[in-house]
């Protein structure tokens, strides 16, 4: 756990480059409603940090605000040492080093896109350029990324015809196709069954080791967070706790985030793990 005040920078004095993400006093409103209030935290290279909290706690809003997708009303955000401008702008090089996978990535399954085309979008710099610029390097990178997640055979298949597990593997290839330093995942295993979810995390953590990624992920699976994550941020509009999961996810903190009923239920399920209702 990093002492947050030591890592927070200003526009004039950027944060030390070792800190991948630094958020200080972030507040986000939607209409007149404050969704995220005065949140501060930092993220170090190679670490895996989970954001937990009930539905409507502002987890997705927090992530979207720190990427500049949603506007923020107050606070400073530094990504890979660079400040996020008030209008959400960041140098393109910094954007290239970050991969973001939203909760519902394919909003419309009627969009005709093949797996290799999707992975290729992860390679592109997305600035004005001729469509065939760097074609050979692009094709090579797509092949390597898809092969690495054992999905090369899916290259020509429309994304709409992939199973849940295959889609997630292709999305991991989208992250892999270019070297990244940070992955931001919004409930990545949504829609997967238990087996596919376990496979997804196996792929994710193997690749994390190989690539040296840092991960910031929203999760509802507290057991997975305890088992796999280095740090946890407990959010319910404000940041209620942060630290190593075993220290931060105490019954008191969980009660503050989710309510006391949830803690009693969660505790009984942990004790009687064979209970089919748990």
């Amino acid at each position: 756990m990093v002492v947050k005040s030591a890592a927070v920078g200003t526009i004039e004095n950027p944060v030390p480059h070792e800190t991948l993400v630094s958020v200080e006093g972030l507040t986000v409103r939607r209409d007149t409603h404050v969704v995220v209030q005065d949140v501060s935290f930092t993220l170090e290279p190679g670490t895996d940090t989970a954001i937990v909290g009930p539905n409507g706690a502002g987890k997705s809003t927090l992530i979207q605000a720190l990427l500049g997708i949603l506007p923020r009303q107050a606070g400073d955000v530094f990504l890979l040492g660079q400040p996020l401008s008030p209008r959400g702008r960041l140098p393109i090089k910094v954007r290239q080093d970050i991969a973001y996978l939203p909760q519902n990535f394919l909003l419309d399954r009627r969009i005709p896109i093949s797996a290799s085309e999707l992975v290729g979008l992860g390679w592109d710099r997305l600035r004005p350029q001729l469509p065939w610029t760097g074609r050979r390097a692009r094709d090579r990178a797509i092949q390597q990324a898809l092969s690495q997640v054992e999905a090369w055979h899916l290259r020509d298949r429309p994304v709409s015809r992939l199973s849940g597990g295959e889609t997630k593997r292709v999305l991991l290839a989208y992250c892999l196709v270019r070297p990244r330093r940070l992955l931001i995942l919004d409930e990545a295993p949504t829609g997967l069954d238990a087996r596919s979810e376990s496979d997804f995390y196996r792929w994710l953590y193997t690749l994390k080791q190989e690539q040296g990624w840092a991960i910031l992920q929203i999760s509802h699976d507290l057991e997975m967070v305890r088992r796999s994550c280095d740090r946890v941020l407990c959010l319910n509009r404000t940041l209620l706790c942060q630290g190593i999961p075993d220290h931060a996810l105490t019954p008191e903190n969980l009660a503050r985030a989710y309510g006391s009923e949830f803690v009693r239920y969660h505790h009984s399920c942990s004790v009687r793990s064979i209970d089919p209702l748990c």
Binding site: L67, I98, Y100, P102, F105, E117, L121, L126, P131, I184
Partner: peptide
């Protein structure tokens, strides 16, 4: 369309993903 093809495709596919990439 030619010069911004990849951005247009990603915007059509998922707007937040495109914005996160600097579009």
């Amino acid at each position: 369309i030619g010069l911004t093809l990849r951005s247009q495709i990603l915007l059509t596919l998922n707007e937040p993903m495109a914005i996160a990439r600097g579009v």
